[in-house]
Simulated scan of single mutants.
Amino acid sequence: METIQILVLAFVQGLTEFLPISSSGHLVLTPLLFGYELQSLAFDVAVHLGTLAAVIVYFRREIARMLVAVLDSLRTRRFDDPDARLGWMIVLATLPVVVLGLPLKSVLEWLREDDQLIALVIAGTTIGFGLLLWWADWRGRRERDEYGLGWGDALVIGLLQAVAIIPGTSRSGITITAGLLLGLTRQAASRFSFLLAIPTILMAGGLETLELVQTAEPVDWSGLVLGAMVSYLVAYLTIRFFLSFIERISMLPFALYRFLLGGVILGLLYL
Rank of each mutant, 00 (worst) to 15 (best):
L92K: 03
I249N: 11
R258M: 04
G35P: 03
V219W: 00
L29S: 02
V97P: 06
V47H: 05
S40A: 03
L86E: 01
Y257W: 06
S106H: 15
L131K: 06
I4G: 14
D114L: 00
L120D: 03
Q13W: 07
G124P: 01
R112F: 15
V264H: 15
I165D: 06
L224N: 06
V70T: 09
L195I: 14
L95P: 05
V219N: 01
E37M: 09
P167Y: 07
D114Y: 00
R65A: 08
G205A: 04
F79P: 09
L102D: 09
D137S: 08
E17C: 06
A64L: 13
V47D: 04
L104K: 00
P31K: 04
F259N: 05
I176G: 03
G130M: 00
Y270L: 15
S222V: 10
M89N: 05
T16H: 08
G14E: 02
L7T: 15
L160G: 01
E247W: 09
A216D: 07
V55D: 02
A255P: 01
I4W: 15
T175A: 04
D145R: 10
L196N: 10
L86N: 02
L29R: 02
V68Q: 12
G152Y: 02
L38V: 14
A154I: 02
T16E: 08
A204Y: 00
L131C: 11
W134M: 11
T51F: 06
W134T: 09
I265D: 05
L86M: 03
V225Y: 12
V98Q: 01
W221T: 12
L15H: 11
L95Y: 09
T200S: 14
S40V: 00
Y270C: 14
P167A: 09
G101S: 00
G25N: 04
Y236T: 02
G158N: 02
V91K: 01
W221L: 14
F59K: 07
Q214T: 07
R112W: 14
M1I: 13
R77E: 10
L67I: 08
I90V: 15
W151F: 15
G87E: 00
L92Y: 03
L131H: 08
P20R: 13
L196R: 06
L256Y: 09
E62S: 15
Y232H: 10
L252P: 04
S24M: 13
G140N: 11
F129Q: 03
L207W: 12
F129V: 04
I90M: 12
L71Q: 09
G227F: 06
L149E: 05
V156P: 04
G267S: 15
Y270D: 12
V156D: 05
L27S: 14
A93C: 05
R248G: 15
I166A: 11
G262Q: 04
G227K: 07
A69K: 12
L210F: 13
Y236A: 03
F241K: 10
L182K: 10
I90Q: 08
W88N: 01
G101L: 00
Q116L: 08
G150F: 06
A53D: 10
E146L: 13
Y257P: 00
A164N: 05
L15R: 10
L184N: 02
P199T: 12
E211A: 05
T177R: 10
V107F: 00
S250Q: 14
T3F: 13
I265M: 11
G205M: 02
T51S: 08
S24G: 14
A162M: 01
L92H: 04
I176N: 03
R112V: 12
S23P: 07
M203H: 06
V98P: 00
F241A: 12
L111T: 05
L33N: 10
